[in-house]
C-alpha cells in the first residue's frame, strides 16, 4: 500500500505498458501514457500505425480532414522518446499477471532494414510486380478430372460431337457410364462444348433420368400404375422402404440400392412389378426381403 502512495511526481520511467493496435485509440493511449512517464510498446499488425482514420477523407460533424487532425499525433507517436513502435507485428503469446507480463511478439519480415530505410520510395517506383498487368485467372476445368475420367469423357465428346447441340447425348452417355452426372465432369463439358455451366445445369436438372447425386449400384423401380396398384404395389413399396430404410428417390448409405417409383411399365399382367436395373420382376410384399437378399448374394457371387 505504501508503494502505491509514493508520489509519482517525477520524469523518470517506471513500469512499461504494451498497447496492442496502433489506430487512433492505441495512438492516444500510447501518447497519454508516454507523457505520464511510462515506457510504451505500441504493437501494430499493419506496416504503419494510423488504423482506419487515414483512409477517411473527412470526419463528422466538424468536417475536419481526417489526415490533418491525425498526422500531428502520428508524428508525435513516432518521435516520442517513451514510445517504441513495433509495426508489422502480431501478438504471439502473453504470460504472467497484472504488473508482470511477459509478451511474445512475432515481427514479420519487411525485407527492409528499418534502421537504414529513409522512405525515399525508389524501391516502390522500380518494383517490377507493380507494373505487371493483373488479369483474372480462369480456372481450367480439365484440372479437376482424373486422367482416366478425362480419357473417357474426351472420347464421349468426340463421339457425340464437340458442339452445344451435343449436350444431351453427351450427358446421357455419361449418366449411363457413371450412373449419375459428376459435378467436375459437368464443368468440363461446359468448358469443352462452350456452354455456360448454368445452362448445363438447367438441362441436367430438368430430366428425371439425369441424376446429380451418385446412384446406387442397383436401381429399383416400383411400378405404381393402376393394375399394379390394385394388386398391392404400395405395400411392396412400403416393404422395400422398410427394409432399405430409405424413401423413394433416395440411395442407401452403402450405395447398393436407389429406390424410385414409376407410373406404368406396361407389364400389367405381371403386376405388381419391380424393375431392377433393366430386368422386370413380378413381386409380392411378402417376398421383398428374400428378393433383396438374392440380389445382394448374386453381387457377392460375381465379386
Amino acid at each position: 500500500m505504501s508503494d502505491e502512495k509514493k508520489s509519482l511526481a517525477s520524469n523518470s520511467k517506471h513500469g512499461s505498458v504494451l498497447v496492442i493496435g496502433g489506430g487512433i485509440a492505441g495512438i492516444q493511449s500510447a501518447l497519454d501514457l508516454a507523457d505520464s512517464g511510462f515506457k510504451v510498446y505500441l504493437v501494430e499488425s499493419k506496416p504503419s500505425i494510423g488504423g482506419v482514420m487515414p483512409q477517411l477523407d473527412k470526419t463528422f460533424p466538424t468536417n475536419d480532414c481526417a489526415m490533418c487532425i491525425l498526422a500531428p499525433k502520428l508524428v508525435s507517436t513516432g518521435r516520442h522518446p517513451n514510445i517504441e513502435l513495433i509495426t508489422y507485428s502480431d501478438l504471439k503469446n502473453i504470460e504472467g499477471q497484472l504488473g508482470n507480463f511477459l509478451v511474445t511478439i512475432n515481427k514479420r519480415a519487411r525485407s527492409v532494414d528499418e534502421s537504414l530505410c529513409n522512405g525515399c520510395g525508389l524501391c516502390v517506383e522500380n518494383c517490377l510486380v507493380r507494373f505487371k498487368p493483373q488479369k483474372p485467372i480462369k480456372h481450367d476445368a480439365k484440372k479437376d478430372l482424373s486422367e482416366k475420367d478425362l480419357e473417357i469423357v474426351d472420347k464421349i465428346i468426340q463421339t457425340c460431337g464437340k458442339e452445344p447441340d451435343s449436350l444431351i447425348p453427351v450427358m446421357q452417355v455419361i449418366n449411363e457410364n457413371y450412373k449419375y452426372l459428376p459435378k467436375s465432369i459437368l464443368a468440363y463439358i461446359a468448358q469443352e462444348l462452350e456452354i455456360p455451366l448454368s445452362q448445363v445445369y438447367h438441362v441436367a436438372t430438368f430430366y428425371t433420368s439425369f441424376s446429380l447425386k451418385p446412384r446406387g449400384k442397383h436401381t429399383l423401380r416400383v411400378c405404381m400404375g393402376t393394375a399394379c396398384h390394385v394388386r398391392g404395389s404400395p405395400r411392396v413399396l412400403d416393404e422395400i422402404k422398410r427394409h432399405l430404410k430409405i424413401e423413394s428417390g433416395q440411395t442407401t448409405n452403402d450405395g447398393l440400392f436407389t429406390l424410385e417409383t414409376v407410373n406404368c411399365l406396361g407389364a400389367c399382367a405381371l403386376g405388381p412389378v419391380v424393375v431392377v436395373d433393366d430386368e422386370y420382376y413380378p413381386i409380392s410384399s411378402s417376398k421383398v426381403e428374400d428378393f433383396l437378399k438374392k440380389i445382394i448374394k448374386e453381387d457377392e457371387q460375381i465379386a
Binding site: A9, S10, N11, D32, L33, D35, S36, G37
Partner: peptide, 12 residues
C-alpha cells in the same frame, strides 16, 4: 484522469 496524469506525473 489520464490526461490530468500526464501533467501531474511531471516534476516540471
Amino acid at each position: 484522469a489520464s490526461r490530468a496524469a500526464c501533467i501531474l506525473s511531471k516534476k516540471e
